[in-house]
Simulated scan of single mutants.
Amino acid sequence: MKKKISIFGSTGSIGKNTIEVIKNSPDDFEIIALVAKNDVKTLISQALLFKPRYVVIENEKHFPKLKSSLKNCEILCGWEAILEVAKIKCDLFVAAIVGFAGMLPTLNAIKAGSNIALANKESLVCAGKFLMDEAKKHKVKIIPVDSEHNAIFQIFENENLAMIDDIVLTASGGPFFNSKKDFRKISVAEALKHPNWKMGAKISIDSATMMNKGLEMIEAFHLFPLKKNQIKILTHPQSIVHGMVNYLDGSSLAMISLPDMKVPISYALTFPNRMKIRHQKLDLAKLQKLEFFAVDEKKFPAVRICREALEIDGSAPTVLNAANEIAVAKFLDGEITFDCISKIVEKTLNKISHKKLSSVEEVIFFDEKARACLQTHHSSIFQKF
């Protein structure tokens, strides 16, 4: 029987890679829903190829083109339609919507009893406790798609939890790991040019600031039964070792592969099994070296800021994420300089009083509160640093 898949964020980087994996195994999967925000051209081509039951575009202006291009499926538009289609149970819900926007659809999918292939780290950063509690309540598996968390997921021995010393998430260091360039003079094009991974704009900038790794540290805290001080980060420029688990007996398990998102995606699609995919084979003899470095938190303060938000807990990670999304968008639009991203995030985090959260509604409240602080250039947050 084919595994029924819904892909939310099908036209983004993760969505497209998921499509490629599924396309090469048509007898194993059936796509029942495709959801996108703006890229109607790609969405139409995907829908014509896979013929899903539901096709949803968030931007309503693209609905007429979508409607005229497709037949024999239910075509919907708007945010409410996305939330409703997320409630339709499937075997695996690929959560690949970028940013905080992915949280509610993912929550609806969990409540529907769909297992989750989680690429949307912001869902756990902002509402990790609530999503994990719902997953436990509905007996839903959450399989991480981020290469680092997927790596840890593959080698984490839950039955030997007491023997785990710590885990290591690796970071490439992004395009500026070895750069001595003044961060105030970094262009958008330079920040988007990742040395190892081909990703969307938002995550590429997060990788360049290393905010991505800080967010992944918070995500890991919710995914794995660990204390906050058991989650470590190392810079690994080659992006071959994606994660490590260190045990108290001196053993360390590492998951290694070439930097290709189809590897963790295929694992998530077939868990607890594996599948053959088309990829370049890892040849250790050609690597020559694998390097590891401590994170330079003076150069990349985003990691420290995320750690502080995790320690504060409560509303702090939600505020941190909202401020980062706004700051990254403003950098991409040319409104602020690269160095201001982390400064704006830290200033916003310190500006808002934090509290323990008791509901998803409070998560949404603090997300909106943080964005309200940053909605205009005239806010004191955006004063020149």
Rank of each mutant, 00 (worst) to 15 (best):
Asn273Ser: 10
Ile364Ala: 02
Pro272Thr: 14
Lys89Met: 05
Cys73Leu: 05
Ile164Trp: 11
Glu335Gln: 15
Glu297Met: 10
Met211Ser: 03
Asp27Met: 13
Leu107Asp: 05
Glu134Thr: 02
Pro64Ser: 06
Asn72Ser: 09
Gln375Ile: 09
Cys373Ile: 04
Ala162Leu: 15
Ile5Ser: 06
Gln46Ser: 10
Pro195Glu: 10
Ser187Ile: 04
Leu124Pro: 00
Asp367Asn: 14
Phe130Glu: 00
Glu30Ser: 08
Leu320Phe: 05
Ala162Asp: 15
Ile164Asn: 04
Asn24Tyr: 14
Ile110Asn: 01
Asp182Val: 04
Gln230Val: 01
Glu335Ile: 07
Leu234Asn: 15
Met211Phe: 05
Gly12Leu: 04
Glu362Gly: 12
Asn273Lys: 15
Ala47His: 06
Asn246Ser: 13
Lys198Gln: 14
Phe221Lys: 02
Gly200Ala: 13
Asn150Ala: 08
Ser68Asp: 14
Gly9Asn: 02
Pro272Val: 14
Gln288Trp: 10
Met217Glu: 13
Phe153Leu: 04
Pro317Phe: 02
Met261Cys: 07
Glu291Asp: 13
Ser68Pro: 03
Glu361Val: 06
Lys141Pro: 01
Ala316Val: 01
Phe176Thr: 02
Ile312Thr: 03
Lys193Val: 03
Cys77Lys: 10
Leu118Val: 00
Lys276Cys: 10
Met261Ala: 08
Ile364Lys: 03
Asp146Phe: 01
Glu308Phe: 04
Leu223Gln: 05
Phe63Gly: 07
Lys228Glu: 03
Glu368Tyr: 05
Met255Tyr: 13
Leu49Ile: 12
Ile336Ala: 01
Lys343Val: 03
Arg304Gln: 11
Pro225Tyr: 09
Val94Asn: 05
